[in-house]
Structure formats: structure tokens, C-alpha cells
């Protein structure tokens, strides 16, 4: 069992990621993810205080497009792919949580 990851951690991230896990899956994932994180311990242990992060391999900046209207997608084509539709809109079950 990993030192870096607990069963509660896995339950918490599963909840954040909207995944449901059985107890058995929780055990399996805790072990498997723990092994990967233990392998990543070499990275976590590095002292990189003076190294800047690289979020992206390309040094591009200011990629912009002109503010000109282009084609939209046909509504029927879009809605035909939806699991549930009503009154020209996407239908979803009751929303309980607040919008952040």
C-alpha cells in the first residue's frame, strides 16, 4: 500500500470526477494509483525552486482571430445527438447543486 495515497483520497477524487466506485474498486484503485504516485515520488522529491514551469512546448503568444461571424451548426444535427431533448433544448434531470 502506498504511503502517498489513502482510500479517502481516492474516494474524494472519484467524487470530484463524478465516478462511482465500489468498495472493491476503491481498494484496487488505491493500490494501483499509489504505485504510480510512488514512482512519481522521484519527481516530487526534486528541489526545483529555481526552475520555471513549462506548461506548453511551444513559445507562441497572441494567437488571435478576427471578430467576424462564421457558420453555425444546424440545430437539428446537434440535437439529434443528444440523449434527451425538449422544446429545442437539451433536457437534463433536476439540478440540485448551486452554480458556483
Amino acid at each position: 500500500m502506498s504511503e502517498s495515497l489513502t482510500r479517502d483520497d481516492v474516494a474524494k477524487v472519484a467524487h470530484l470526477a463524478r465516478l462511482e466506485l465500489t468498495d472493491a474498486e476503491l481498494d484496487t484503485y488505491t493500490e494501483q494509483l499509489g504505485a504510480v504516485l510512488d514512482h512519481a515520488a522521484d519527481v516530487a522529491a526534486l528541489d526545483l525552486a529555481d526552475v520555471p514551469p513549462t506548461a506548453h512546448p511551444l513559445p507562441l503568444v497572441n494567437v488571435l482571430r478576427d471578430d467576424v461571424i462564421g457558420p453555425t451548426v444546424d440545430r437539428e444535427e446537434v440535437l439529434s445527438q443528444a440523449p434527451a431533448v425538449e422544446d429545442r433544448r437539451f433536457r437534463v434531470p433536476a439540478i440540485l447543486g448551486e452554480e458556483p
Binding site: I69, T72, V78
Partner: peptide, 27 residues
């Protein structure tokens, strides 16, 4: 008050028919 949306060229327009100012990007 732009002509188009932030990341795609769909019209930025209030009050249009539902789901008409949409494209792969904003969907």
C-alpha cells in the same frame, strides 16, 4: 459587445432562438 463569441465565430447575440448560435467549439 463583440460580433462573435470568445473562442469561436458564432454570433454573440442575445435573445435568439435556442441552440442556434452554436458550433463544435462553443458546444
Amino acid at each position: 459587445a463583440t460580433a462573435t463569441k470568445l473562442f469561436c465565430s458564432c454570433p454573440n447575440m442575445f435573445g435568439d432562438e435556442p441552440n442556434t448560435n452554436v458550433c463544435p467549439v462553443c458546444l
